[in-house]
Design a protein around this nucleic acid. Structure first.
Lengths: 125, 125
DNA sequence: TGACATATATCCTTTAAGTACATATGGAGG
DNA sequence: CCTCCATATGTACTTAAAGGATATATGTCA
């Protein structure tokens, strides 16, 4: 057995492809909300084993706001600490469309690769 | 138009998901060869726009050899500078199977995401 | 009043990819 | 013969993006 493919890329290594940005954009399609809630919303897309550390999504949210993909405002109403409510901008919706097309193409390539592999190994192993 | 989604992840940014390691493993399934030849072999899998810079694949090849996924030997025969001929090990074949399963799962997740997006946006835009 | 849950935010580190450059060999042309 | 070029391999530095730890604030509840 190989040592679980330690090293580059994906299987087994630390750095995953978690698609946090498109997940956040997608989650915001269901309506504006605050960061902590987005954390649980994006879990259902299946790209991460566990919930990502909170710090992570704030980093993304800040960056996305800088890029004009989201807008935000403080919400002091309600209990607990004040929340910052994020919403999608038109640019954000466009970016998500971009992502969807990219992800579609990527899925095709991945499928093509796997198909090719299965053909190559058909009838052995 | 958004500024082409500058920033994180994939569409438009620098860091791509090029799957060089699985591509190299797959290319070696067609038989042992040297690095420069692998460069052109892996182009056909479609993960990179252009051929990756040569230095890159040597980095990968060295790392893969450290991990026991490939073996190599000098070939001084023939013209030009000596070549190093790489071949797959059993661990390498197993790692490729690993990759194939990973890529299959990833493709499913991507398709699921895109499907969900298309449903959400059906009938508008 | 002190632990706890929610919520936001900043920092430093690690990983892997991008980029540029350094080396070596043999062939072709002036 | 000497330079330039194509092939071929390799090292080194830089950047990008994710991982992870930690800091801050607030209101609830025991």
């Amino acid at each position: 057995m190989p040592k679980n493919n330690a090293g580059h890329g994906a299987p087994g290594s630390g750095k995953q492809e978690r698609y946090i940005q498109p997940c956040l954009l997608m989650a915001l399609m269901d309506g504006p909300t605050h960061g902590y809630d987005l954390l649980s919303r994006i879990a259902k897309y299946g790209f991460m084993r566990d919930e990502p550390p909170p710090g992570m999504i704030y980093r993304h949210l800040r960056q996305m706001e800088e890029e004009g993909l989201t807008a935000s405002a403080w919400d002091a109403e309600g209990e607990g600490p004040a929340r910052r409510i994020y919403s999608l901008t038109d640019d954000g919706r466009e970016a998500l469309e971009f992502w969807a097309e990219y992800m579609e193409r990527l899925a095709e390539k991945l499928d093509g690769f796997v198909r090719r592999y299965r053909e190559k190994t058909a009838g052995r192993g």
